[in-house]
């Protein structure tokens, strides 16, 4: 069981992630923007962060960069949500320190597949 933080300003997306991951045995924590997400990440150790890129207060890229500066987040996988199929955004997020991505819209099994790729029992 892993502790997974989902950061998205859209409650419906967060809810969807929770609904998919909790039955799979994960503990899902939510944050509504990057700043809240960072605060939650600082509060304790996480196994995975799933973040949107477009968010108020602190966007996903800023969050990823900030997380990568935390000693506790070294090697922690970070996945971002994107609607882009082009590479620009992906490269930007990757160079910010992201581990992988999930393309919106996604199906529950796609989400589980990515989480399974990055979180090992």
């Amino acid at each position: 069981m892993a502790t997974i933080l989902t950061v998205d300003d859209s409650p419906s997306i967060r809810q969807m992630i929770k609904v998919v991951l909790e039955p799979a045995g994960h503990n899902v924590i939510e944050a509504g923007d990057g700043a809240q997400g960072l605060a939650k990440a600082q509060a304790g150790k996480l196994d995975l962060v799933i973040t949107d890129l477009n968010m108020p207060v602190m966007n996903g890229l800023e969050l990823i960069r900030a997380l990568r500066k935390l000693p506790s987040a070294v090697g922690m996988p970070i996945v971002f949500l994107t609607t882009e199929s082009n590479d620009t955004v992906k490269q930007e997020a990757k160079s910010a320190g992201a581990t992988g991505w999930i393309t919106k819209p996604f199906k529950p099994e796609q989400l589980l597949a990515v989480v399974g790729k990055l979180v090992r029992a």
């Binding site: 990568r68 090697g75 996988p77 970070i78 990757k94 320190g97 990055l118 090992r120």
Partner: peptide, 10 residues
């Protein structure tokens, strides 16, 4: 690669 959360062993 390890720092960004990817694990070659995985």
């Amino acid at each position: 690669i390890l720092r960004n959360g990817s694990n070659p062993l995985d």
